[in-house]
Simulated assay, not measured.
Amino acid sequence: MDAVRILPDVEVATGAPMLPAQFSPEVRAQLAQIDEAATRHVEDNRPEKTRKGYEADWSAWERFATEVGLPVLAVTTGTLVLFVEWCWIQPGRSVGTFLAPNTIDRRLSGVVVSGRRQHKLPLPADIAEEARALLKAKVKEMEKAGEQRGRGQAPALLVRHMRRVAAALPDNLAGIRNLSIMTMHFAVAGREHELAWLRERDIQEDPEDRGLIVDIRVSKVAPREVVVPYGSRASICPVRAWRKWKQAAGLDQADGFAFRRLHSRWHTVMSAGLSPEAVGDVITKCGELGELEIRPTGHSPRRGLVTESQRAGNDPRQAEKQGGWARGSKAMAGYREDDDRWEENALHGVL
């Protein structure tokens, strides 16, 4: 975004700041252009997956508005409640299924964010509160009826899972790379796109040989630096796995992708990196190869780190920092609560 300088002559002459109501039409027009350029600049710097998600959410809102005869920019408490009702009966990806509650909740967020940022609507902070209350009530009724929608939350990829995968992976370039992806994904509690966009320069050796320093520059929330110490189990140690992959792949270009594609025929290392979706596919294939009882996805290592850290008795704030969650994140707290059912149970010491 290019820098712009506005110099109202009146303000310079009098030395007193002008009120917005006193701005000339020319200044107002220039400020409007700056606002528009700023919005485009922010959008251009968002991760592609986030942009596409918001676009899909707003597209769904446009279809809803057209069907019920509402102006597209009529985003209100009441219309969002109607939107939930409309989304609830929309078909899912598979024939005979309906949209999952998490998808509907994400669409609510996408509509509100797009309304504020793209269309400059002055929407209150609690505008979607009633819509989410309705969605919560629908989920309760769905659970009572034994109905299932969507795949549910990603299962946690735990240490015992990774040990089985490590034992099953072949000792070739694909196996060495996939082990490094899996263990690094877990160690930094990463998102798929964060792993996909890592460059060689972003993974540095600690000067005192305590492990790795991983600079996650591209993130949905904010960049962060994560230290990855040696693991106590050599087979799934992220430090050793990265070194083995780096040597086997001959990585020696600072700006090159840390995790590369392999040629489909010759199985040689290519210069192109992996897409976020491909990173998720690697985790799922690892689960299949290890014959796990779960079907891990690209979110499973992130959830797994939180679960295992909780079991080890670590402060939750450490996991928040590792994975780039906001302080007191409800999403991360939900991961811990699932495992707390075993640790904090009314039957302990009873039977």
Rank of each mutant, 00 (worst) to 15 (best):
L7A: 13
A16M: 07
L19K: 14
L19I: 06
A21S: 15
F23T: 06
P25Q: 13
E26K: 12
V27K: 09
R28P: 05
A29M: 12
Q30H: 11
Q33N: 13
E43S: 11
E48W: 10
R51L: 05
K52D: 14
G53V: 08
E55H: 09
D57S: 02
W58K: 00
W61F: 08
W61T: 04
E62H: 08
E67A: 15
G69H: 13
L70Q: 11
P71S: 05
L73K: 13
T77D: 03
W86Y: 10
W86F: 08
Q90W: 11
P91A: 05
R93C: 02
T103P: 03
D105T: 07
S109H: 06
S109T: 14
G110N: 01
V111H: 02
V111P: 00
V113I: 14
R117P: 03
R117F: 05
Q118E: 10
Q118R: 15
H119G: 04
L121D: 12
P124G: 09
P124V: 12
A125Q: 15
A125D: 15
I127D: 05
A128C: 07
E129K: 15
E130G: 05
A131T: 01
L134M: 12
L134I: 10
E141V: 07
G146W: 05
E147Q: 13
A154P: 04
A167I: 00
P170E: 03
I176S: 06
R177F: 06
R177C: 07
S180A: 15
T183V: 07
T183G: 09
M184H: 04
H185R: 04
A189S: 14
L198Q: 06
L198N: 01
R201F: 04
Q204E: 06
Q204L: 14
D206F: 12
L212G: 11
L212W: 12
I213Q: 07
V214R: 13
D215A: 09
K220Q: 12
A222D: 12
A222K: 15
A222Q: 13
P223H: 11
R224P: 09
R224H: 08
P229K: 11
P229G: 11
S232M: 11
S232L: 14
R233L: 11
R233A: 12
A234G: 06
R240P: 05
W245D: 10
K246N: 03
A254F: 02
A254M: 07
D255P: 02
F259N: 05
R261S: 09
L262W: 02
L262M: 05
L262Y: 04
W266Q: 07
M270V: 01
S271C: 00
G273Y: 02
P276G: 00
P276D: 00
E277T: 03
A278S: 08
A278V: 01
V279G: 00
G280S: 04
G280C: 01
D281M: 01
T284C: 00
C286V: 00
E288P: 00
L289C: 02
P296N: 04
T297R: 02
L305A: 09
Q310P: 00
A312C: 07
N314W: 12
P316F: 06
K321Y: 08
K321S: 13
K321G: 04
G323M: 11
G324R: 08
G324F: 13
G328A: 13
Y335G: 12
E337S: 13
D340W: 11
N345H: 15
N345W: 15
L347S: 14
V350N: 15
